[in-house]
């Protein structure tokens, strides 16, 4: 049965009540565990600081060498080889992912074999293999194209680039494949129904949407790569760690120079992490109604809500 309130004539439509009830002012739940945890952490930090203060460390050496020309060059080499390897890995990775998913059994098997090999062997071994290639192929002979002594071609830089880049491609291939497969099949059907070819579909419809899934793990991969590049010291590549160790061994300040390298690695990865965060945020645009808050916005919100009022959540997406 319909009650009278179900059908209210337009002139008597229900109105929101004019006098809002008093806003709720309750006493928040107290989190005593947080105070306890803070005290414990502070105590532990104090012990650590005490231990470091008593250690036989020459802090001035850290300062002295931090901006040393050798260290700066090492940091530059680390960044250069990482960026170039990543570009190589990304381009080759997309190609491998498309090959892997191809209906052509030859290309998909080749891609499978590539990923199987380069993902299945340690990058350390791969670096050594590239570096020592001259032992078995003293001459690089590409027929009419190119011919030279292998030792001239396989410089420490080349060995580092090939070792890191080809290895990275295997991982990027899997990331790209996951991204491409995450795009709804209906998208491909729609573009096919419009008369677009498979190539147009991939380039215009699927890849742009796959990017949202590909970018976050790619940022992760890059930071990993930056750190893995420290292995390149085994192929005589003059990257950050090798430079630091060189100085450390000659000056006797081994730990001090390792601290220098540690701080540099942290600084570089931090800068790139921040970049990654904003890149992800950019690609989330259009798919989310409200973008996640930036760290700065979070800090502001936390500080203001402490006092019970502040900017409302999710304001960034408006």
């Amino acid at each position: 049965m319909t009650t009278p309130t179900d059908k209210v004539p337009s002139d008597g439509a229900p109105q929101p009540s004019k006098s809002a009830p008093e806003a709720i002012r309750a006493i928040p739940v107290r989190h005593y565990g947080r105070y306890v945890a803070a005290v414990v952490v502070l105590a532990l930090l104090g012990l650590l600081a005490n231990a470091v203060a008593g250690a036989d460390l020459r802090w001035e050496a850290v300062g002295d060498y931090f901006f040393d020309d050798q260290i700066l060059e090492g940091a530059k080499n680390t960044i250069v080889v990482s960026v170039l390897s990543m570009i190589m890995g990304l381009v080759l990775g997309i190609v491998l992912a498309v090959m892997r998913m191809s209906k052509n059994p030859v290309t998909s098997t080749v891609a499978w074999g590539y990923i199987w090999f380069f993902r299945g062997t340690p990058v350390y071994v791969q670096l050594l293999l590239w570096f020592n290639l001259a032992l078995v192929f003293p001459i690089l002979n590409l027929g009419p194209l190119y011919k030279d002594e292998m030792t001239d071609v396989m410089t420490p830089f080349m060995a580092a680039l090939l070792g890191l880049g080809l290895n990275e491609a295997a991982y990027m291939a899997e990331i790209c494949r996951a991204g491409i497969q995450s795009v709804d099949e209906g998208q491909t059907e729609a573009s096919q129904a419009l008369g677009m070819t498979q190539q147009q579909n991939m380039r215009r419809i699927v890849l742009p949407q796959a990017m949202r899934v590909i970018v976050p793990p790619t940022g992760n991969e890059f930071i990993n790569l930056l750190k893995t590049s420290s292995l390149c010291s085994v192929v005589m590549f003059e990257e950050l760690l090798r430079k630091a160790q060189n100085i450390g061994n000659t000056s006797g300040a081994v730990i001090e120079l390792l601290i220098v390298a540690t701080i540099w690695y942290l600084a570089i990865t931090t800068v790139f992490s921040i970049g990654q965060y904003y890149l992800e945020r950019r690609y989330a645009r259009g798919s989310l109604r409200a973008l996640p808050l930036t760290p700065w916005q979070k800090v502001r919100q936390n500080v203001f809500t402490w006092h019970g009022r502040g900017p409302s959540a999710g304001g960034a997406g408006a």
């Binding site: 209906g186 998208q187 059907e189 729609a190 096919q192 419009l194 008369g195 949407q209």
Partner: peptide
Amino acid sequence: VAAQRRDIGMVFQRFNLFPH
């Protein structure tokens, strides 16, 4: 096949618009 499909429009149950 793509050329054949040009002259045939299709509308799907779940729209399948390109979200980007």
